[in-house]
Simulated scan of single mutants.
Amino acid sequence: MQYRVQGIVIRSMDYGEGNKIITLLTREHGKLSVVARGAKKVKSRFGSSAQLFTFGDYLFFKSGQLGTLNHAEIIEPYHKIREDLHRAAHASYLAELTDRMLGDQEGQPILFDQLKGSLTAIQEDKDYEIVDHLYEMKMLMFAGYTPELSQCVVCRESREAAAFSIGLGGMLCERCILRDPQAIRISAGIGKMLKLFIQADVRRIGQIDVKPQTKQLLKHLMRSYMDTHVALRLKSRDFLDQMEKYGV
C-alpha cells in the first residue's frame, strides 16, 4: 500500500552498506519507519530528507513492518538547528523522547503540531529549556501522566498549592503537605508555570523570561516527575547534562 505523509524525522540510523532507516512522526499515522535506500551515498536523492529533524513530504510503499521510501520533498530542513550544538542537543532530546515514548503507528495530530512547533521555537532561539518542559508535559499528557494542578491530590479541594508531590502526582495544599515527606515546596509562580506547561501551545509562545533559580527548580520538578512516572534513560538527556556540567 502506498502512503503520502508529511513527517518529521525523529530518528535516522544506518541500515546495511548504503541505506538508512528513518523514523517519522506524522500527523496522519503517528510514528512510522521507512527504509531510505542509498541515503548514505554522497549523491543520494534521499540524503538530505533522511537527516534528523527534517520536515517534509514523504511518499513510500508499505507491505510489512517497514515501508520503502519512493520520493521525498523537504519542506523545512531546520538547518539552524543542525548547525548549532545547543540547538541540536535540545532538539535531539525532544526527538528521542518522542521516539522512545511512542510505539509504531502511535501518536496524534496535536503531538505532531507540538513537536514541529518546538523545533521552530528552538530554531528561533526561544528559551530551550522552557520549550523542553512544554513538550515534556505534552508527552506526559499523551501517556496519561498529567500532574494534578487544579486541586490538592489528597483532600481534592481547590486550595493554593504549597508543594508538589512527585510520587502522588500533583500539588499538595498546606494542610496535606505532611502526607508526603518528600514533597517539594513551590511558590505560586512555580505553580503557574507548571499550569502553563499543560495549557500553552508551544506554537504561540513568545519569549518567556524566567529567573535562573526558578528554571532550576522547574527542571528538577519535571525531570523528577518524568523519571518517576515514565522512567526512560535517554542518551540525549545525558548529553545535555554533560554540557551543563562542563559549561559548554
Rank of each mutant, 00 (worst) to 15 (best):
S63K: 15
E73Q: 08
F112V: 01
I122L: 15
F55Y: 12
E96M: 05
D127A: 06
A95D: 10
E124Y: 14
S118N: 11
G103P: 06
S118G: 12
I122P: 04
Y128F: 14
H79D: 07
A95M: 08
L119P: 12
D125M: 09
D99Y: 15
E124M: 14
Y58K: 15
F61E: 04
F112I: 04
T68I: 10
Y128C: 12
R82G: 13
Y128T: 11
E76V: 08
L94P: 00
E83R: 09
L69H: 13
P109E: 06
P109W: 10
I75H: 04
T68A: 13
N70Q: 03
L119N: 07
A89V: 02
D99R: 05
H86E: 06
L59I: 07
L69T: 06
R87N: 04
A88V: 04
F112S: 01
G107S: 09
G67E: 01
L102H: 11
L97F: 03
K116C: 06
F53M: 10
Q114N: 05
L66I: 03
F53V: 15
H86A: 07
A121T: 00
P77W: 02
M101D: 02
K62E: 10
A89R: 10
N70K: 04
P77N: 09
V131H: 11
D99F: 08
G64T: 09
T98P: 00
F61D: 07
F112N: 00
H133A: 09
Q123E: 10
H79Q: 08
D113G: 02
D113Q: 13
S118Y: 15
M101I: 07
I81S: 14
T120K: 15
F53N: 14
D84P: 06
G107D: 01
K126D: 09
H90T: 14
R100V: 00
